[in-house]
Structures are given as structure tokens and as C-alpha cells.
């Protein structure tokens, strides 16, 4: 699983736009780009969900 973050302007922080399932980084890129196409983003990045280090949760 990959977490997808994007922003529409550099003035705003990257925010979470969704997740995609792919075992391959290339496919994850394609999936993120084609599923979360609702805006013309200036930046989009993906992270493996299991790379997240959770330091707080309520």
C-alpha cells in the first residue's frame, strides 16, 4: 500500500489525497497519477505505507 500526497500550490502543504495498492513502485506512480486526477497538482509524492513511523495516535 502507498500513501499519496499532493498539493495544488507550493504555498500550501502537501496533503494526503488517498492510497493505492501496488507491489511495484512504477505501477504505484501510474495509479496515483490516474486515480487522483481531480486537480492539476504542482507536486505529488507517494510513500510506502509501511515506511511510516507512527509517533502519536489518538
Amino acid at each position: 500500500m502507498w500513501e499519496v500526497f499532493a498539493r495544488r500550490k507550493f504555498e500550501e502543504p502537501l496533503h494526503h489525497v488517498g492510497t493505492v495498492a501496488a507491489d511495484d513502485e512504477r505501477l504505484a506512480q501510474v495509479y496515483a497519477r490516474t486515480i487522483f486526477n481531480e486537480f492539476s497538482w504542482v507536486e505529488m509524492v507517494i510513500f510506502r505505507r509501511d515506511s511510516a513511523v507512527r509517533i502519536m495516535e489518538s
Binding site: G18, T19, V20, A21, T34, I35, F36, N37
Partner: peptide, 17 residues
């Protein structure tokens, strides 16, 4: 159709979580 599939994807992924 791409949008509809994308919406389905969102709802199924939420269920998966």
C-alpha cells in the same frame, strides 16, 4: 468511466482499511 472506477476504488480501499 475512469471517474466512476476511481470512486469505486476509494470506497473499496476504505473498506480494506
Amino acid at each position: 468511466i475512469q471517474d466512476e472506477l476511481g470512486h469505486a476504488h476509494i470506497a473499496y480501499r476504505l473498506m480494506r482499511d
